[in-house]
């Protein structure tokens, strides 16, 4: 396997990889997308294709443009340059009724003291499919039950959202996104604020849902562990795309380039990653045989 590189920022294409090429099975296509906030560039020249059925993790430091990229893909922001299509539609149209794109935002965007039940929150995910002046029907009620059962939250359906744990809150958001039966799920920092054991359970759930509903997942995260553990493609973003390929190809060099001074902090929070990347960086010889699975600096943790 070849490694990274990257003197000039661009999409990395592994030898033999089909990434970066537009193909029929790509469901999300970004082509030369740039965006600036009041003349201050936030994203430059992003070209990214997401394959149907894949799980893409977008990682990068705070302020690196992850949220901006997500907002562009959701149609909340419009790119200054370039084009974005989601299953051949504009992002706004793809997201409107929830049947193409489902969005799982960060948990903190919601006021969890709001007086509302889990069932009502999930039901609102169907609003894009309802004509104006229409109330929810018994059929919609049943769809809520199915969505809540899929995320194992049916027992909490009629509880107010105020008493839910962090993991349960995340499941409510997923159920709200799933209820309109999307093909693609965008997740924004899904594991933030959940302890490590809870994260593994959550990522397993995501994997099960992906198979059950035939989903394509796009996950934005600064949490290296969760991305590496659950994604089959990784995009490293710091204003532009530094790497876009399989997670096994990531090395400390790339991460340093992407996270820059944040790198130590990132690795300190994941001591096992830190040990592994130090090994790959400071030593030579057989220890740094990157093709050896035991020495892959960011190999996903074994699932129990």
């Amino acid at each position: 396997m070849t490694f990274l590189p990257l003197s000039a920022p661009h999409t990395h294409v592994d030898a033999g990889s089909d990434l970066g090429k537009h193909q029929g099975i790509d469901v999300v296509c970004l082509h030369n997308v740039s965006y600036a906030y009041e003349h201050k560039p936030a994203l430059t020249n992003i070209t990214l294709h997401v394959k149907q059925g894949s799980t893409l993790g977008i990682i990068g430091p705070n302020g690196g443009g992850k949220s901006t990229l997500l907002k562009l893909m959701l149609g909340v922001l419009q790119p200054d340059e370039g084009t974005i299509t989601i299953m051949d539609r504009k992002p706004v149209d793809a997201c409107r009724d929830g049947s193409i794109v489902g969005y799982v935002p960060q948990r903190h965007v919601l006021d969890w003291t709001f007086p509302i039940t889990v069932r009502q929150v999930v039901q609102l995910g169907l609003i894009g499919k309802k004509p104006v002046f229409n109330w929810f029907t018994r059929r919609d009620h049943e769809a809520v039950t199915v969505a809540l059962r899929a995320v194992d939250m049916l027992a909490q359906a009629d509880r107010p959202i105020g008493g839910l744990s962090g993991g349960q809150q995340q499941r409510v958001f997923i159920a709200r996104a799933l209820i309109a039966r999307p093909k693609i799920l965008f997740l924004d920092e899904p594991t933030t604020g959940i302890d490590q054991a809870g994260q593994e359970i959550f990522l397993q759930l995501l994997d099960e849902l992906k198979k059950q509903f035939g989903l394509t997942l796009v996950m934005v995260s600064h949490d290296l562990r969760s991305v590496v553990a659950s994604c089959d493609r990784v995009a490293c973003l710091n204003r532009t795309l530094h790497y876009h390929d399989r997670p096994q190809g990531l090395s400390k060099d790339v991460l340093f380039k992407v996270f820059q001074c944040d790198m130590d902090a990132v690795l300190d929070t994941h001591s096992d990653l830190h040990d592994a990347t130090c090994c790959s960086h400071e030593h030579s010889g057989p220890c740094c045989d990157h093709d050896h699975p035991h020495h892959n600096p960011l190999a996903p943790p074994k699932k129990s």
């Binding site: 909340v76 409107r96 969005y103 935002p105 919601l110 006021d111 609102l124 995910g125 609003i127 894009g128």
Partner: peptide, 15 residues
């Protein structure tokens, strides 16, 4: 209700 609960999400869902 949706706009009161979560304005951005409501907008994304076509409200």
């Amino acid at each position: 209700l949706y706009t009161t609960l979560d304005e951005q999400m409501a907008r994304i869902n076509g409200v």
